[in-house]
Amino acid sequence: MGKAIVITSGKGGVGKTTSTANIGAALAQQGHSVVLVDADIGLRNLDVVLGLENRIVFHMIDVLKGKCSLQKAVIKDRRIENLFLLPSSQVDEKDAVNEEQMLHLVGQLKKSYDYVIIDCPAGIEQGFRNAIAGADEAVVVATPEISSIRDADRVAGLLAAADIPTRLIVNRISAAMVKKGDMLSKDDVIDILALDLLGAVPLDDEIIATTNKGVPATLEGTCPAAMAYEVVARRLNGEVVDDVVHNVGFFARIGRAIGLSHTA
């Protein structure tokens, strides 16, 4: 029996879809079978981020309406073993699905895959309730900004009320701005939200470049954000892994070069 994890945030545009794609690809690369579920009905995006948009025939709503079987709607990613996508519909509305249907659908998928990762829409309305309905665990994505953290806190409260264990990804961290004191650090965000950290992902141009190409950064290789998502994937899988250290300062770098210290 697999595990269902919902990726959520409250606020839009903070990196839910990016995180879903990269965590999914990383877990698949690490040898697990993974199905990604696009729960953003009417605004589907996970397919383009994954570069699978040309392969879609059927989608989630077709399955729920009995137009096709679940197996038929799930697309296999040909670049990597064990990565699959259940696309959303671009033409239906959020209320085309209810929580019971989602619970059932996710339950079906958990029988066939190690991980079911659900990309939640922005907001806290029906789309959100649907996306969390079948989840065993939740990941809240927040950027180090006031509005994002505020919305993340709201969502974390709703997840706690629904008894879903929740961990945090702090996304789009700029080490340079944190250093100047002009951006909240990952520790500030953890402290404010009082959630356990799953990972800290740097602001990384490669995310935009790889998204342009429709290839998750974790499939391409070794950019800082990809490495951070690999750590996230391992932690989701229950492994204990150290943070990747990005953008180490000048003195720490020299110190390390001459063998003085290991910490940055």
Binding site: P144, E145, I146, I149, R150, D153, R154, G157, V178, K180, G181, D182, M183, L184, S185, D188, I192
Partner: peptide, 26 residues
């Protein structure tokens, strides 16, 4: 630096504002 320049790091301002906003929200 803040003491010398009389400028408070903007993240400290953000933290203070967040503490109040979240307390009210909660």
């Amino acid at each position: 630096k803040g003491l010398l320049t009389g400028r408070r790091a903007s993240k400290e301002v953000a933290k203070g504002r967040l503490h109040l906003v979240l307390a009210h929200d909660r």
